[in-house]
């Protein structure tokens, strides 16, 4: 009867494997990837998932089978052995080889995402944004359209954006606006100057497969490039609304709502420190929004009564 304990082990392991099989179909899986390097991250994830999944099933199968096969039998004596040198060598060398392989293949992606040398240089073609985290929101600063235009005429003027705020810069809390990079065209990279005013925070954008802590006293550069867009001017509200699916032309599509989360514990309201990522179709659409946002942020006349929804 003892051998039936193996059924318990087997059932739990099967359920575990089953959950991983079912989860993608239930929508409990990696969120939609929209960044240029996210594909590499996902590929690596699936590679490791494949390897570990294989060894998981292998070892658990041996264990469950072993429990079934070798459970107590008074007529039998256990085999007397202290080990097997060849086996030890084998199961040291093979995993070591696989692990070294995993270690080596990931280096390039890691370099690509985080190394300073890979950060886009401030210049005419780099989108620059300053993200300042504080308890418990993201205060985001954009260059004014005028300042961006000046970078086109003299790229050197773009150098000081992260360090020197201008009076006509545009401030929009919790909304991270960038424009899309179209494959095959000139790269449209985003350079974020990440800061914090009080404690550690972490900028996490699941759809970009990106996360970076913000450290007090430091400005940390973060870059990304988005390959899809999710916002467009909503004709009814007159605002740029996210959740826009370019294929269907509908707003409020959950697959196209890309949230910005705080992932490093930052105090009481850490759980609700969220923002949103708005990706515009192209630079022109972004500039149009930026002009609108600038007018709002530098409003000098009473607000027009908001239209009822």
């Amino acid at each position: 009867m003892q051998k039936y304990w193996s059924v318990l082990f087997g059932a739990v392991i099967t359920a575990a494997v089953g959950l991983f099989v079912v989860a993608p179909f239930m929508g409990w899986w990696l969120p939609r990837n929209v960044s240029s390097f996210g594909g590499d991250v996902d590929l690596l994830f699936y590679l490791i998932l494949g390897i570990t999944g294989f060894f998981f099933v292998l070892t658990e199968a041996i264990l469950v089978y072993g429990i079934w096969k070798f459970s107590s039998d008074p007529t039998r004596k256990a085999t007397y052995t202290h080990g097997n040198h060849k086996l030890e060598v084998l199961w040291t060398i093979v995993p070591a080889g696989i692990l070294v392989m995993i270690g080596i293949v990931q280096v390039r992606t890691w370099e690509n995402i985080k190394y300073q040398s890979r950060m886009p240089r401030p210049g005419a073609n780099t989108q620059q944004i300053e993200v300042v985290a504080r308890q418990w929101e993201w205060r985001i600063r954009y260059p004014s359209p005028k300042r961006m235009a000046s970078w086109r005429s003299d790229p050197r003027l773009a150098q000081d954006f992260g360090a020197v705020p201008h009076q006509d810069d545009v401030h929009v809390p919790n909304e991270l606006h960038v424009w899309r990079h179209q494959k095959g065209e000139e790269p449209q990279k985003v350079l974020v100057h990440l800061k914090t005013r009080d404690v550690l925070h972490s900028m996490k954008l699941v759809n970009l497969r990106l996360m970076q802590d913000a450290v007090p006293g430091k400005t940390i550069p973060v870059w990304f490039m988005v390959e899809e867009y999710n916002t467009s001017l909503h004709p009814e509200t007159g605002r740029w609304v996210d959740g826009f699916d370019p294929k269907t032309g509908h707003w409020n599509q959950k697959d196209y709502v890309w949230e910005l989360a705080c992932a490093e514990f930052c105090g009481t309201r850490h759980t609700a420190m969220k923002g949103k990522l708005f990706v515009h179709k192209n630079r022109d659409d972004f500039l149009e929004w930026l002009k609108w946002a600038e007018a709002e942020d530098h409003r000098r006349t009473p607000a027009v009564p908001s239209t009822e929804p």
Binding site: Q2, W5, T59, I67, F70, S71, S72, R76, K77, E88
Partner: peptide, 19 residues
């Protein structure tokens, strides 16, 4: 860690398990 796991499995293998 992997080596240890394999060795535990090796210990169970062809043993006479009291569960």
């Amino acid at each position: 860690s992997a080596v240890k796991t394999f060795n535990w499995l090796g210990t169970i293998w062809q043993g006479n398990l009291t569960l």
